[in-house]
Amino acid sequence: MLPLVLESVTFEVAGRRIIDRVDATFTHGTRTVILGPNGAGKSVLLRLCHGLLIPSEGAVRWGRGDDSIARQAMVFQRPVLLRRSALRNLTHALALRRVPRRERLARARAALDTVGLASVAERSARVLSGGEQQRLALARARAVEPAVLFLDEPTANLDPAASREVESVIQDIHEAGTKIIMTTHNLGQARRLGDEVLFLARGRLVERAGIDDFFRHPSSSEAVAFIRGELPWH
């Protein structure tokens, strides 16, 4: 279904332009990190890609015309879990993807296992810790075996230890062949997880570069200022 192509995508709310004529192509295999200062429109761009928002102008196109949300998944900053057991959260997602009933339990258990939550399978999702909840959200995303996984600041609310666990799960998912597109404000995380950077400022795509190039030789003044601001010791 990849590549994902954004053609002059613009998004406006009440006359205010949040995303301004973004053109971009996302291909298989790389981990794309979307960076930018607060209010740059990172989360909105992610939702436009995922189809949760519809562009005011321009288009979001998928390769071979397959734009089905069924081949995508998204993990949000704050995990939204249903008031039922960890396992049932996964079987619910599998049911929505029309996975045959007899396969659901096995696949759900396998996914729980990969994020280290097999021992809390029967526990209510709502009573898990923040880190466990985010890993459960990742397990849910993983269980449906998406071609693309969007992640919106997946570790913003977690402590460093929990962040590391989440990062390692993201890495696993990438290695299993899923395209990763994520936003973060944590530059260390961007360096650890990213292959390439899309840098947004005031709704516009200002710079796109490989991860090392971006940090060593940012070409735009906005990116220079951003890296300075985020890493004052740099």
Binding site: M74, F76, V80, R83, R84, R97
Partner: peptide, 27 residues
């Protein structure tokens, strides 16, 4: 408001989401 994006992301239509939320807000 809390669940909407997540449910749509999972591919849940409005009718299915309605029943999911009925069960989730049971208390």
């Amino acid at each position: 408001v809390e669940y909407g994006e997540q449910l749509r992301s999972l591919g849940s239509g409005p009718a299915r989401s309605g029943f999911t939320l009925l069960w989730d807000t049971r208390f």
